[in-house]
């Protein structure tokens, strides 16, 4: 579970910082100001791109798609998102300056709307406006609907036309060294504060921060599962204790025989504790085998790559064996302390 979530986030890049701003009539920031900040802190950031998210529908002839994420970006976005081209070119600075109606599409869009034909030079209609496809990206995820291959990039200057707002409110920075993340964030915050004089008008978050949030969420979930496991282990322990008590009662005569032949208390105690330990250890092994099989097969069924972790296997084995020993101890001590005369007399 945790593995799955962390994985899906890591390909988004942990070196990104997203900045969102709310421009007002008196205080505002535009891409040029942002580029200025980038140049000032050349040693901290590698690159930056404004991002304009456009909601809408793609259309090629009669084929439509409404799941794709459509983003207006700068020419540097290929580095920001770590994309590679399979054919054509990416958006260029000149496209942005002259607000060219060009776009670069992801592999899923290419597959679903153009069915293997080369989409280069063809027209893609975004919310009714025609854009020329100049590049196709290499497959990055697995070309599924909603994945990072289901995307269209256009010059941010053209995208503002589609959103009908000249305002660009979102930027993505890439830091040189992820260890300086906190410092980079504070630099950005300072610069932005100088412009806006109000902390509510901008927000600086790193993806790693989001990742941490998600991790703490899955941590809570793991804790919940551990809680459930603990309760079931307790119940199992009481079950083992019961079985052992029954076993002691049933075998009272045997204990009597052994004691009459010279078995000491610790010998009997040892016998029963080992028996309980071995019984529950076997149970533990069976449980681990069953659990691992179920995790993998059920995980496969619901599309999660779930792997049993070695750490938890070890812990649960120790716990199950331990429970046998702990809960077997009490009945065993009772057995050891039995009076041989009474024990021999029992049927």
């Amino acid at each position: 579970m945790t593995d799955y979530i962390s994985d899906s986030f890591s390909d988004l890049g942990t070196d990104q910082i997203s900045v969102s701003v709310t421009n007002t009539s008196t205080r505002s920031i535009d891409p040029d100001d942002m580029y200025a900040i980038l140049e000032e802190n050349d040693d901290l950031f590698t690159t930056m791109s404004p991002t304009v998210t456009v909601g809408g529908q793609l259309k090629n002839g009669s084929e439509t798609s409404s799941t794709a994420s459509i983003r207006g970006v700068s020419e540097d976005y290929m580095t920001v998102g770590a994309y590679t081209l399979s054919s054509g070119r990416f958006i260029q600075y000149s496209d942005i300056l002259s607000r060219q109606k060009v776009c670069v599409i992801g592999s899923y869009v290419a597959q679903s709307l153009y069915f293997g034909e080369s989409p280069l030079g063809q027209t893609l209609k975004i919310n009714g406006e025609a854009y020329t496809i100049v590049g196709v990206l290499e497959e990055k995820a697995d070309s599924e609907e909603g994945s990072s291959d289901d995307c269209v990039f256009l010059p941010y200057s053209s995208a503002t036309k589609l959103t009908r707002s000249a305002d660009i409110s979102s930027y993505t920075f890439i830091v040189r060294d992820t260890n300086t993340m906190e410092y980079c964030k504070s630099i950005l915050k300072n610069d932005l504060f100088e412009v806006f004089r109000d902390e509510d008008l901008y927000d600086v978050t790193s993806l790693s921060e989001m990742l941490e949030m998600v991790e703490s969420m899955t941590g809570t979930m793991t804790l919940l599962l551990v809680g459930i496991a603990a309760i079931s282990l307790l119940v199992a322990g009481i079950g083992i204790m019961n079985i052992m008590l029954v076993s002691v009662t049933e075998r009272t005569r045997e204990i009597g025989i052994r004691k009459s032949l010279g078995a000491k208390q610790h010998t009997i105690l040892q016998q029963f504790v080992i028996e309980a330990g071995v019984t529950s250890a076997i149970g533990g092994i069976l449980g681990i085998l069953l659990g691992s099989t179920l995790t993998i097969s059920l995980g496969g069924l619901i599309g999660l790559e779930a792997m049993p972790s070695l750490q938890w296997i070890t812990i649960s084995f120790c716990i199950s064996a331990g429970i046998g020993i702990v809960f077997g101890y009490m009945p065993a001590r009772r057995a050891a302390k039995l009076n041989p005369i009474d024990a021999l007399r029992s049927e």
Partner: peptide
């Protein structure tokens, strides 16, 4: 005590019981 008695039984006494008392 219990354990000393066990040792005495073990070393000096051989029991034969009515019900054989075999395992």
């Amino acid at each position: 005590k219990d354990d000393q008695l066990a040792e005495v039984r073990n070393k000096t006494i051989g029991f034969i019981f009515q019900q054989y008392n075999l395992l």
